[in-house]
Design a protein around this nucleic acid. Structure first.
Lengths: 221, 221
DNA sequence: GAGTAAATTTAGGCTAGTCTAAAAATTTGT
DNA sequence: ACAAATTTTTAGACTAGCCTAAATTTACTC
């Protein structure tokens, strides 16, 4: 069964929104905002994806991916991240320049291509943003990181990635002197606006809004 | 101005059909057969491409690419051939497996990507089928080959490529023991069906139909 | 639990690109 | 040069994916 470019983008959106909220149902409006389409258009597509057994859809109740839909979404994510790795490792793009191009390349259809690309890159476990790359069977072999904003522990956090890949955000990070692999310590946690004061690599400190902190992924070292 | 995936395919078809017939006007039916679309659909698209000043179109009289259209077509061909080179050189595909994948990859939009890919491959002059790769300005730096069927000279011909990239034809060639770089001599030329008797590398001889010979490209050594 | 606000779906319309069938223009054969 | 055959265009319809506006369902508040 063929899944169009557009359908793939919907499945990808549903997958990542669902992950974001603990594998919960995803609402029409969430998808609409994420893809910058109108809610009515989303409803149309949900019906179509439901007919194809890629999602479980009950009107007004949100959607969840079926196993088939999840498999398709993870495959697209695998392709996206492998192409990002290729662009950075081999073609020497900066990590904040590759997202848009990978958005196009992730839709190239050829299982053999993706397998050969994976081998060519040495079967990487993560992409240049630190996001884990699933294998051909859809298995993620490395730990998923958590948002800095939700870290319970205050010390010994390591930046492993971002959840906002916009070049605006990535530029903001590099201007703030935060990059992949940096060590973070939470020095203060502001209750009322949930902003954080962070020490980077035991050197300089800075303030991060909740919004920024929620888009920085860390692992506990 | 943006040119869609579909428009790019039409421009590419017009470019190669035009080249095939000595830069002549290309007819609606020729395009229709080449793209496996109906003639009526082709007419629709010709109007659209004409509105965008990508082709010169006079109803019933065929079309020619404008400079703008030619530039766009050559850019797509550049991308196609660079990706084919990548697939064969880096990912170790066979030369008869890459056409379909490159058909998809040629539409990825990013000037920076294609420039970096070109450098990564070492700025190749030809793709794995022996077709010349134009540079970023659209210039072909190597000689365009001629069809074996139209060779005036009988001796010292070198196989430089094919004009039919179907895996059916490529398999036929490899079964016949003809590959890129082989030396050919025309031993007999049959007037009535235009078939040829060919000696390959001064070793074995074989018969080629006009159809096959017209799809083998050679240079005079 | 009734009324309002918010979310979602339905209804109907638009564009790009395709198709079939029919009409018009061109080319060919005598 | 005129009729027939061929090519090309026009006319009208279809699908995918999007939209706006209106109707419906659900959620929230008192």
């Amino acid at each position: 069964m063929l899944v169009s470019y557009t359908e793939e983008n919907y499945l990808k959106a549903i997958y990542s929104l669902s992950r974001l909220y603990n594998d919960a149902e995803v609402s029409t409006n969430q998808i609409s905002e994420h893809l910058k389409n109108k809610a009515a258009s989303v409803t149309d597509m949900l019906k179509k994806l439901s007919d194809k057994k890629l999602i479980d859809y009950k009107p007004y109740k949100g959607v969840k991916l079926t196993d088939k839909g999840k498999k398709t979404a993870i495959k697209v994510i695998r392709k996206h991240r492998l192409w990002e790795a290729f662009l950075v490792e081999k073609l020497k793009f900066k990590w904040d320049e590759v997202h848009e191009i990978a958005e196009q390349m992730e839709h190239i259809q050829s299982d053999e291509l993706i397998q050969k690309l994976d081998n060519f890159l040495g079967n990487p476990k993560c992409d240049p943003h630190g996001d884990p790359i699933p294998d051909a069977a859809g298995k993620f072999s490395v730990q998923r990181s958590i948002a800095l904003s939700s870290a319970k522990q205050k010390n010994s956090l390591v930046v492993t990635g971002v959840s906002d890949h916009s070049s605006e955000f990535l530029k903001y990070l590099s201007n703030s002197g935060i990059s992949l692999g940096d060590n973070l310590k939470i020095e203060e946690s502001n209750g009322y606006d949930r902003s954080l004061k962070i020490k980077v690599n035991n050197k300089h400190s800075l303030f991060l809004s909740h919004k920024a902190a929620s888009n920085i992924l860390v692992e506990i070292k």
